[in-house]
């Protein structure tokens, strides 16, 4: 199963302060460990929200709002996508991440939906099949 590991933004990441050399080294080492263990699928760091934007939806209307956004704790500063056998394994890997701020910080672990999670009823093929059967039944009536 796949998990998305999200590193939360804080004042520094939002201000565009780059990590110091020690953190960069530690993170580099950690990334290498993930790669060497064969579990890392992808991972990226994100620019501050001042370089991003939001698109707001209201019915058919779309409104674009440029960053920055204020609620830093609800923003993410980077992510990993890992492939492991269980949530516990994902947790074990996250416990080994060097503390991204050196102070209070938080990393969120979320499981990625796989096709199986939707159940067979939701595959487009099955839907199509059902529709065909229904149409056939209607014709036979």
């Amino acid at each position: 199963m796949r998990f998305m590991i999200m590193v939360k933004a804080d004042k520094n990441t939002e201000a565009g302060v780059l990590p110091d050399e020690k953190l960069l080294t530690d993170m580099g080492k950690y990334n290498e460990e993930l790669v060497k263990a064969g579990v890392m699928l992808a991972g990226e760091g994100l620019h501050p929200s001042s370089k991003g934007a939001r698109v707001k939806f209201s019915g058919a209307k779309r409104t674009v709002v440029d960053g920055p956004f204020t609620e830093a704790k609800e923003l993410i500063a980077g992510f990993w996508l890992i492939q492991v056998k269980s949530k516990e394994e994902a947790i074990e890997w996250v416990k080994r991440v060097p503390n991204p701020t050196g102070e209070e910080s938080e990393i969120e672990i979320r499981q990625v939906f796989e096709a199986e999670d939707f159940g067979p009823a939701f595959t487009p093929e099955l839907k199509q099949q059902e529709e065909k059967i229904r149409a056939q039944a209607a014709r036979n009536r």
Binding site: A37, V84, K85, S86, E88, E89, I91, E92, W93
Partner: peptide
């Protein structure tokens, strides 16, 4: 026990 399974898989 689940955590130990996970550690075992990694280590």
């Amino acid at each position: 026990h689940r955590a130990i399974d996970a550690v075992w898989r990694i280590e």
